[in-house]
Design a protein around this nucleic acid. Structure first.
Lengths: 132, 132
DNA sequence: CAGTATCCCTTTCGATACTG
DNA sequence: CAGTATCGAAAGGGATACTG
């Protein structure tokens, strides 16, 4: 069996394309994965540039897919927290190679990560060092 | 260091979203990866439903990104072959976990893979068996 | 605070006919 | 065969104002 001939069916991909091709879906997944629990406005802030409409819609789709869990508290002012489900965590893990591939191609992007905590940036650099 | 707290920066993701959010990009990558070299009309046929315009445009972008190589032969009728570059092969490898995640979620999709060669389907089943 | 409702612009992409 | 040209429909998504 040739080493570089690992064949995969593209049919499952068709299904997932709709999900991850949503401009913000993977970003939300990753942000929640980084932070654990976040409130609506916290996600808005973390994903600089997303509109409340888009965030709201995308979160609903992610919930429908069983990737994100929503918990609301009967308080005033209202409080709602979002986090990944186990499935969401798995998805996030499965895109890490993709992240690494991207980072490896354009390490220039690392410098633009002003919205990322220094700890994450440091870890990225370390990961890149290991891989190269 | 908590085990489930592997943090990743989302900035590289922003860059890749544009690429993979193209409806057909990953499908082309994977099809080429499965088959090695393919001609324009072969890709058209493999990706049932894509229009020549969309295929042409997407192939150009993938070439511009250095993921796909194009080789044309001065023959009549003309012949052009596409294949993955090394970078393209790497990208394809990096999305395999994503494919596996998707396949694991909805093994029902496996049954709809009528366009896939039986050998690929068999391999998918085997891979699923290993993972579960 | 956590969304929803509107408006509108842009991009995407399918269908089809045509060309070197 | 390997595309290109043109048209149009549809969806994505931003800005903003508003509501429970």
């Amino acid at each position: 069996m040739p080493k570089n001939n690992h064949q995969t069916c593209l049919c499952p991909l068709k299904g997932i394309i709709d999900l991850i091709s949503k401009k913000w879906a993977l970003l939300i997944i990753n942000t929640l994965g980084n932070s654990g629990k976040l409130r609506f406005n916290q996600i808005m802030h973390a994903l600089d540039g997303i509109s409340p409409k888009t965030l709201s819609e995308t979160l609903k789709e992610l919930q429908a897919e069983g990737l994100v869990a929503r918990e609301s508290f009967a308080e005033i002012p209202p409080r709602v927290e979002y986090c990944l489900t186990n499935d969401g965590v798995d998805l996030r893990k499965s895109i890490i190679p993709l992240l690494e591939w991207t980072a490896k191609r354009s390490s220039v992007d690392q410098k633009r990560c002003e919205s990322c905590p220094p700890s994450i940036r440091a870890r990225n650099q370390a990961n890149l060092g290991e891989k190269n």
